[in-house]
Design a protein around this nucleic acid. Structure first.
Lengths: 245, 245
DNA sequence: TTCGCAAAAAATATCGATATTTTTGAAGGA
DNA sequence: TCCTTCAAAAATATCGATATTTTTTGCGAA
């Protein structure tokens, strides 16, 4: 058998196309990039609480670098809306609120629906196969690392994002993809912050499967409906948690 | 007569709500903010050519400041996609291309259509009045400062943006508004760069009027159609200019 | 000539010190 | 008691110098 280039499904590096992290600066290399990544994860996981003041001097001693890389990393994080910059009075971790989450959810649905519809209309068979592959990979990994209680599974996180980003990957606009990527990460942050206690017991895997099926059937209306329902359900759940506090 | 608070139309500061600039850092205040603004306009106007290398030392001597504010301003400009940052090898002005413009135009239509539809559905009478006012103000100002040939009119630029941003201002998502704002500015850049020679002679003012009418009639389908046609027309024109070079 | 390699030059990234601004907190007056 | 004011403290912003990295250049060897 010759090289497997004629069958994309067998090509293992299909996943490489979509960078799943903040994608702006590579994590290695410059000090700035490293700090950027560390701060980014620390904010996403809630290590750094929403609204917390990010004092340069403090960070400087914690991460053991000069002020320049810190300030630069913080400036970069501004674009991801993970950090707020107030002129002449420094940086702070972006605040969260039920209201903002509501907007986030709404906007995400709007943008991803558009991305999905465009992909369904324009995506070729290679895109279809990527979707199938992403769905399959996701289905093989448990959502929680423990059976009895919820323990976040990093691998699932990665594959879940991969799946959703693949859905819209053939939309024909890298700008839209970037926006969706940004909003996805914002959403992850909210998920992390709402304390991953008792996760809803609905069959998320089945929902993914259904979306995948609708996509393969090129049924844009159904696929969109399922996708939005999928997001809205977790959204509702998170919103409850947020307003309960 | 008492204060004009009961009639929003007479309230002159209706415009204040939407910041029309890059909105991240205020233009005055810190050195960083000033440099940010200057670089931003210099890039938008084409003073700094697409793809041009932004050497820190050079900028440092031109703007007469230290390296920190420069680097920070450049980092901030990264979020607007006016500047590209390549780890360990500095910054350069974001490149332009017909392909990217095509995506920009598409995405802008997608997002603004959604914003407009949501606004039409949810906007109250105060929003309606803002639209009327923005449309009126725009209609009073000539597109070009000269009658015989085209000379960009700054006031028109401001009011035009104001009009379009007002259209989507009641969509209920500040995230979407921010995205549209960003894309609008990107588009302005393309317009500036494509050399403002001989502008299309179609009646842009009439198009704005028609959109406004459709909005007031709460006809979402018609308004969207007109808006998209409006964008597509200038888009086509710009795309021609771009690929002709 | 062309290729590759190393040294020089240029540019980026980072540091630590200083200037500037904001915040804090305590004293004095209404 | 509640403001207001002003000075000390804290934090941000900026600078100029140095360390690192990338790019260029020039010199042989195939």
């Amino acid at each position: 058998m010759n090289k497997a280039t004629d069958n994309p499904v067998l090509e293992p590096d299909t996943t490489e196309e979509i960078p799943l992290d903040g994608s702006a600066p590579a994590s290695s290399g410059s000090m700035t990039s490293q700090i950027y990544q560390r701060l980014r994860t620390d904010i996403m996981t809630g290590e750094l609480a929403p609204g917390a003041k990010l004092k340069i001097e403090e960070l400087r001693s914690i991460y053991d670098v000069g002020t320049s890389p810190i300030r630069e990393a913080l400036s970069l994080l501004t674009s991801d809306h993970f950090v707020e910059r107030i002129d002449q009075r420094g940086f702070r971790v972006a605040k969260i609120s039920a209201g903002e989450f509501d907007e986030l959810l709404k906007t995400r649905c709007w943008l991803e629906e558009r991305g999905l519809r465009e992909s369904i209309e324009h995506g070729d068979s290679s895109w279809e196969e990527k979707v199938v592959l992403a769905a399959y990979r996701l289905s093989r990994v448990p959502r929680s690392e423990a059976d009895d209680h919820f323990v976040a599974n990093d691998e699932w996180e990665v594959l879940h994002k991969q799946f959703h980003m693949t859905l819209i990957s053939a939309c024909g606009s890298s700008i839209l993809k970037k926006f969706c990527n940004q909003l996805y990460d914002q959403n992850v942050r909210y998920r992390q912050l709402s304390g991953s206690k008792a996760y809803p017991s609905r069959d998320v895997a089945a929902e993914h499967g259904a979306i995948c099926d609708a996509v393969l059937a090129r049924d844009a209306d159904l696929a969109s409906e399922l996708l939005i329902a999928h997001y809205s359900r977790t959204g509702k759940f998170l919103l409850d948690q947020l307003s309960r506090e």
